[in-house]
Amino acid sequence: MSLFIQQLLNGLTIGMVYALIALGYTMVYGVIQLINFAHGDVFMVGAYLALTLIWAFAAVVTGAPFWVVLTALLLFGMAGCAVLGALIERVAYKPLRASPRLAALITSIGVSFFLQNAVMLIYGSKDQSVPEIIPHVRFEFHGVSFSLTQCVIFLTSIALMVFLTWFIQKTKLGKAMRACAENFEAANLMGISADRIIRVTFVMGSALAAVAGGLFGVYYGSINFHDGYLAGLKAFTAAVFGGIGSIPGAMVGGVLLGVLEGLGAAYLSSEWKDVFAFVILIAILLFKPSGILGENLPEKV
């Protein structure tokens, strides 16, 4: 039993990271129905920005408490990626607003290639080691162990998700985003600036991905310019899992996917765990095509 709970906890940790990335996919999809392939790479850039800040910190200040470094690196990553997200939107997607949806899909693939190779050229193709900034503290409880790093990931992710839910539900901007997702044209007619909402969506999604990237780097201790691909694929799966376009869906989907993967690797086989995750995904789509929490919209006639 303790083994099961341990695996569950490990799955939850990575699931939180998936959920943060999945939020970006789902928000963008909700507003402009674009599968933003470059999002996984924005996550990866976030991880590299965090690493850069750790280097800078190590060079300037010594002996700063870990939460200061952590907050700084997450904020730095968020700021950097928010700018990057806005830039990508401006350059690669905005000119294609009136074009077929697949055209923007292709530019997102182009952006993804660009970001990966840009990071490779700047930081090199080797895996980069991320220094351990969070002290190695473990909590043991009936044979189940839980590290401080995992704790930090949980708290940060949950805080962000709560904030996002509040933002979407209560603020004016959040309501405008929901209006756009509900009916783009009508929202425009009601005086909501679509361009502004889309920009905000990209900025927020990218900032969340940056946090995920920073936490990911700190958790695993090594990052590579390729990491965005697999993590992006998983997060995207998670977004669909929960019902793409739905914000609580992305959170639930991400966490569930992480747990499923962890349990699959533990009780089936680590080689087949991705197959396991995808089979469940396809099964869900076949029986409930709109995902776990997605709305089943009736066909417009």
Partner: peptide, 16 residues
């Protein structure tokens, strides 16, 4: 591959 990505973006922008 960097240029490849850039060209993919440009081609789509000019001919969506």
């Amino acid at each position: 591959m960097l240029l490849f990505g850039v060209m993919m973006v440009l081609m789509m922008i000019f001919r969506p």
